[in-house]
Design a protein around this nucleic acid. Structure first.
Lengths: 197, 197, 197, 197
DNA sequence: TATGAATGAGTTTTCATTCAT
DNA sequence: GATGAATGAAAACTCATTCAT
């Protein structure tokens, strides 16, 4: 309070960032629970005790890391989208934005996938993240009004429109699939065919 | 107890089965590492030491559980499929078989998803599982020859043809989606539209 | 269950006894919380993990140690008392039994005193211990009926009849008081004067 | 804050007082070591570092708190005693002063009891506190010369004269004893009977 | 084969204390 | 003097695994 009247060590945001990055790296490498607080601390170049200044406990650290990762991806995906262009064009822009975002940040993507498939996911309030996708929701709604997008449950559109991209990314990691331009274009076409009226 | 009345063989297999089921249940509930060997042992009504008679170590237990789960699902999916019917009809049969299999065994499905998204997956040789899907591979190949299925990378066909079903199942768990007949039919149609020529 | 039909390592009562003794010794030396589980384990010549086989947690260990100590003292105090002798003689026997018990086991006594004056005491159900003192209660009641003992609240009788003995024992530890025969006789006389009618 | 309106000296002493009170409250509630310096600091509304300006370390804080508590009680007990009245009347005055002091400040009393029964007590020089009780010592000495008080070791007089009061206070906390006027009068009578010639 | 006991190495977390301002 | 950040060391407790029977 009124910190300008007092002198003290100040909160070091770089340290927090280092902790986030260390958590992501180690969770991706060792798995969710083998990534111990000590290892994360060491990788972030801080004392284990320091993590507890910024996070309540391990779960809190992981949840906050997940939210950060999801927000950052969402923000990358939706930045610079022209909402007034045709639904098909907008979908294409977003789809490739998405694809580029997750291939640019595969560590973020891997962390989020591991997290979302583990039991911790149940302790996250998804509302906060959903807010980021309002733009997408309204785009699909417009497409349905215009008779361009299938008149089906919204989740089917999301699921066929975007998530197979994640699967293909994982397939490429185990060398079952290569992310050539042709393959990516084919994947986009399949997505579009799945959701268009 | 009552060991007089049972053959050695029978008793063993029941124990192994109990261990598998305990592992699946606890991993689903607590996550990979919170599901400790002692807890699994207790849930399976055996001593921790007994697990080590049947499995080399914890990793071995988890990997074998994963393989068992995957095989069981695959076998359910592909049983009773008439290979000679039209590609579209066969795809439809397999798709609904798949859907019915994973909804009937959601605990198997959840375990497999968590496993496949964690770093342990890297220590599994997928060849063994892939063998189960030879039938699907040749079905898609025939569809492509007949000009009915898109001429794209095989993984795109799998990814759009089947995996979104998993996502929708997860969505239904968090009550974002309901598995009504209409929704499932819509999902199937989206899958077919995505892969058909 | 039916352990004679099974073979396994059996519960080692000597180990439990060692743990109790180590806990008493270290708590007396270092205080309640500086007596760490690791130190207790080391002093008892077992692994820290072994303590957790026999006790739920540190609090459980301390509470059980306290109960053991109290029971052992109570049993020593009341053994061999002839209930039919005069109230004064019985009180004298018990008083000196008590005195001899706690001077013979000063470590038990010190542990109990420290415990009873710390907040943990609130988590102990005293009923169990009180049961041991039924004999004393009925002795005092008889004394009151016979007009030999003051007709005052039972706790006053206990408090003046026995507890000053503890204080004097503590005083002797810091060399403010010596436990000479005369002093002990004087102390007994003061106790008796305090409670007799 | 508001530092303009207060002298340095005043602000300091208030802080120290807050620290003392926080220490007493937390030690009574959580025990000696669970009352951590950080928690005490928070309860006292200061930084942990601030405590170290006034106290060398945790032990120093606890010892100084104990001495403060003991002095304050002693001073309350002995204030306003007329030394020239009869020994019996003076004893009665002091006894009830004592009783009123500790029932008015049960948190001080509890802290002192916990402290005095833990091993830290060994690092306190009791001489300083004893000085406060010179008046009592000389009163008992006069009583012995006058043949009114038993000719026994001084500690027996203290122990039976005053300390049972503490035990009864503790008993009342666990609802084994109620501090009714009659009970307190009975307790006083027992004390007097124990020490009078 | 099967067991419950046992454990060293590890976990998360908190502590008393110091640092930098 | 006063602060919140920072930390090495240690706490309680758990784990995967082995032992002894």
């Amino acid at each position: 309070m009124f910190s300008y009247f007092r002198s003290m060590r100040t909160r070091d945001e770089q340290k927090v960032e280092n902790i986030y990055n260390a958590a992501i790296t180690l969770v991706n490498r060792d798995g969710f629970e083998s990534a111990s607080m000590s290892k994360i601390a060491k990788a972030a170049n801080v004392s284990p005790a320091t993590i507890y200044i910024y996070f309540d406990n391990k779960k809190d650290l992981l949840v906050k890391t997940y939210l950060k990762v999801k927000k950052e991806i969402a923000s990358n995906v939706l930045t610079g989208i022209d909402v007034n262009q045709s639904v098909e064009k907008a979908f294409r822009s977003i789809w490739f934005n998405y694809y580029n975002s997750i291939t640019a940040k595969t560590d973020y993507f891997n962390f989020a996938e591991q997290f979302a498939n583990s039991p911790i996911i149940n302790s996250v309030n998804n509302k906060e993240i959903d807010a980021y996708y309002e733009l997408l929701i309204s785009l699909f709604a417009r497409g349905q009004q215009e008779g361009i997008i299938k008149n089906v449950h919204r989740e089917i559109l999301f699921t066929y429109g975007f998530f197979p991209m994640f699967t293909l990314l994982k397939m490429s990691k185990i060398e079952k699939f290569d992310l050539s331009d042709k393959n990516i274009d084919d994947a986009f076409q399949a997505a579009w065919d799945a959701i268009r009226a």
